[in-house]
């Protein structure tokens, strides 16, 4: 890929109206974080270079900047994605997953949640927000959510999470108030599983 081509990719596909689009994406994120398991659809319009998806790209534009080291999983990493994030957000690349404020990963191949920053007991907010691109937010195995933001229980069935997701999630919940926060994105649809949410298999009595 030539340098000229690279720079065109990097400078296009951002917010056309940064102030109001960033606000709309943030409000969607705030709503899904406050009500874990609910789905919001992001406004279309962002066009990040492959393999970064539209949804994760919109989240990056809304929240990442020079203050937030970003980590890209190898399935999302490419020269053009790096150039795009660098130009659009000014976000530096994190030295490793444990140093990242935001990490962009694919569902099936995502690293263990324990590899990311979980904050400290005094400052649990200094933790990674994990943006996970999955196949779909429905059609998978049914999961039960309980915790703050949920009136009783809520059921979700995202498709395309790793087989070990539930054990990783249980370990992450056990760290509370430390832990990573997860945003699941499929296309432009988005759902959040903040660390406070207890996730369990529907046919199992209790898990993490």
């Amino acid at each position: 890929m030539s340098d000229a081509r690279l720079s065109t990719l990097a400078v296009s596909g951002g917010f056309s109206d940064p102030v109001f689009e960033a606000q709309a994406v943030f409000r969607a994120l705030m709503d899904v974080t406050a009500r874990p398991g609910t789905v919001h659809t992001l406004p279309a319009g962002v066009a990040p270079p492959a393999p970064l998806g539209q949804g994760p790209g919109a989240v990056a534009l809304a929240l990442c900047d020079p203050d937030t080291p970003v980590w890209l999983d190898r399935d999302i990493d490419s020269e053009s994605v790096r150039a795009w994030l660098s130009f659009q957000c000014g976000a530096p690349l994190a030295q490793g997953p444990e140093r990242s404020a935001f990490a962009f990963v694919k569902g099936e191949t995502m690293p263990d949640m324990a590899d990311f920053a979980s904050g400290t007991q005094e400052y649990p907010d200094r933790s990674t927000t994990l943006v996970v691109e999955v196949e779909a937010l429905d059609g998978g195995a049914a999961l039960r959510l309980e915790g703050p933001g949920i009136d009783g229980q809520r059921r979700i069935a995202p498709r395309g999470l790793p087989a070990t997701f539930m054990t990783q999630r249980a370990a992450n919940r056990a760290l509370f108030p430390r832990g990573v926060d997860v945003v699941l994105v499929a296309g432009l649809c988005m759902m959040a599983l903040p660390r406070s949410t207890v996730v369990s298999h529907v046919n199992e009595p209790e898990a993490g």
Binding site: Q23, L63, T129, S196
Partner: peptide, 18 residues
């Protein structure tokens, strides 16, 4: 906008850790 992003990130973490 950068101030808003900083505050927005803080709000999301605050919601995640009630």
């Amino acid at each position: 906008e950068q101030t808003k992003r900083m505050i927005r990130r803080a709000i999301l973490k605050a919601i995640a850790i009630p």
